[in-house]
């Protein structure tokens, strides 16, 4: 059987061709190369392999499982032609500007609310900046305004600061002394 290979890595025709991606639970996903390339990790693999890329045998993703990759693919399909996101800071306050999400994106996160951590981990590994930053923003949204006690409960974090350390932090953060 003749092995199909990627010819001309940067050619637009290549984006329309299918590639098989294998997740760590041995599930195979047939994806358009143009969609898979939203992930910088996969894009780098495709570019590195160049001529030797075997489209039918697949690209292995040992750090992502099938159900999460399915969700990531949904994001990639929607964002395949989207421009790179810009991470901006307010020049005066130095606070990060929050991204404005589209209705589709809001709905996406509503749908996968219980998988935010997995999405963030997968987006980090697959280098999908839009999904990564947006997921982290969603997680920050859920943290915002909570008390330290609530945060500890949320994440199962142990309170390992001594009373002296806490007093020191409080003292440092009280800044208006007149």
């Amino acid at each position: 059987m003749a092995t199909e290979s990627a010819n001309g890595v940067s050619s637009p025709e290549l984006n329309e061709r299918d590639v098989v991606i294998t997740t760590n639970d041995n599930r195979n996903f047939t994806v358009k190369i143009g969609v898979a390339r939203v992930s910088k990790t996969i894009n780098n693999m495709i570019q590195d392999l160049g001529e030797s890329l075997d489209l039918s045998s697949g690209i292995p993703l040992p750090n992502v499982d099938g159900p999460i990759f399915e969700k990531v693919l949904e994001w990639c399909e929607e964002h395949k032609n989207a421009p790179e996101i810009k991470v901006e800071q307010d020049p005066h306050t130095r606070e990060r500007k929050w991204f404005t999400m589209t209705e589709w994106e809001e709905e996406y996160f509503r749908k996968f609310l219980s998988h935010l951590w997995d999405l963030a981990m997968a987006a980090n590994y697959l280098e999908i900046p839009s999904l990564y930053y947006y997921t982290c923003q969603k997680l920050a949204e859920r943290i915002k305004g909570r008390t330290p006690e609530q945060i500890r409960e949320m994440f199962g974090i142990e309170d390992d600061l001594t009373e002296e350390e806490k007093a020191e932090i409080r003292r440092t953060n009280v800044w208006c002394t007149y």
Binding site: I157, E158, D160, I169, R170
Partner: peptide
């Protein structure tokens, strides 16, 4: 949130 834990701090 510096008060959450030493790691956060």
């Amino acid at each position: 949130y510096q008060l959450v834990s030493s790691e956060w701090n």
